[in-house]
Design a protein around this nucleic acid. Structure first.
Length: 300
RNA sequence: GCGUCGGUGGUGGAGUGGUCAAUCACAACAGACUGUAAAUCUGUCGACUUCGGUCUACGAAGGUUCGAAUCCUUCCCGACGCA
């Protein structure tokens, strides 16, 4: 049986994925499923670069702007939801377009990864947090020597999660990459460093501009007022962390802007490190003129 | 002009006679990625290298010493103070 087609638009931040996705959606009668770990949250508008109602141009967007930022949203939830949305959109006779820059989310869906069903155990995590990476590694080795062999022995976050899983279900199951459910076409948007850095700089400056819905600093203040702890805001990433430092008078306004720009540039590089591994991505350099005809063709 | 303090790698900043190619942090480059992924973590980071080493380096030039980034002299540059 012929697998149904799903388009994936991924790539670095500030390359114009959202607009691109909307254009494609218009042409091929599609609906967009966001793959962005921050745009998920309500209240993170400016800093997450969330697509606005106007930018959507009437195209339905899913898995966007619906989680309370006090709660943590995870890949596992994303994967389940995305699968469901893809099915629904296909059922309507439309083409699903997964669009975003969170590589892990995209891979979870595309590679149909099955994650172990072990919910986070906050109490346990708090306990383990106190231990050193060396100690944690020893614990894991005892529980599950196989996982210990390939895990990053210095990464506490990973070690803790592995222990969490091993402790509840015995061993960390080998990751399952089930056969893909759909025929995915992956389009990657990227730009050369200097071009992208320029774009990011402009974008960030605009984010801080007060004329832009009060600006990012104001957005962070609102989040604080709504009851988000500083710790939680920090977890939301550099776009929220640096404004928070500024609000708390730890850095100057200038430092805040510079660091946010730098954080963004570094993030864009990390994104490429992730995406580079996938040989199936068809790359488009957005610093050069390109047409979406090519994309339409490859989808047929 | 006099005086004081300082000039160290891409940057900040340790070191103040031998164990120093120089703690550390940042930046840069490369990479990992099993329910935090805008997160988290790793490696490299003077030059050359057969990856064991070899060479050139701590403003410049001299000097003291077995040995100097570290002590002395002069010069150049910077900050501050006094004129």
């Amino acid at each position: 049986m012929q697998k149904e087609k799903v388009i994936v638009i991924l790539g670095q931040t500030a390359t114009g994925k959202s607009n691109f996705a909307v254009k494609i959606a218009k042409q091929i009668n599609g609906e967009i499923i966001s793959a962005d770990s921050r745009q998920i949250y309500k209240g993170l508008e400016i800093g997450s670069g969330k697509v606005t109602e106007r930018e959507m141009k009437g195209i339905p967007h899913h898995i966007l702007d619906f989680v309370n930022p006090k709660k943590k949203f995870t890949v596992a939830q994303y994967k389940t939801l995305a699968d469901k949305k893809i099915k629904e959109i296909l059922f309507k006779g439309k083409t699903p377009i997964v669009c975003g820059g969170t590589g892990f989310y995209i891979d979870a869906v595309v590679n149909n990864i099955v994650l172990p069903e072990v919910k986070p155990n906050l109490k346990l995590r708090k306990e383990l947090e106190k231990k050193s990476a060396v100690e944690l590694f020893k614990i894991l080795k005892k529980l599950d020597s196989t996982r210990a062999k390939n895990i990053d022995a210095k990464n506490k976050v990973r070690l803790i999660r592995a222990i969490e899983i091993a402790q509840t279900i015995g061993k960390v199951p080998k990751i399952k990459k089930s056969p893909a459910l759909y025929n995915f076409t992956k389009i990657g948007l990227y730009a050369p460093n200097d071009f992208l850095e320029n774009k990011i700089t402009k974008r960030i400056k605009k984010m801080f501009d007060k004329k832009n819905n009060g600006g990012l600093v104001n957005e962070v203040k609102k989040l604080k007022k709504s009851g988000l702890s500083d710790k939680r805001i920090t977890e939301l990433g550099f776009e929220y962390f640096y404004p928070l430092l500024f609000i708390n008078k730890k850095i100057t306004e200038h430092e805040m802007i510079e660091r946010t720009i730098l954080g963004n540039i570094q993030y864009a590089k990390r994104q490429m490190t992730w995406f580079k591994r996938d040989p199936e991505i068809q790359w488009i350099n957005v610093s050069e003129p390109f047409s979406i005809e090519k994309v339409k063709k490859s989808n047929n």
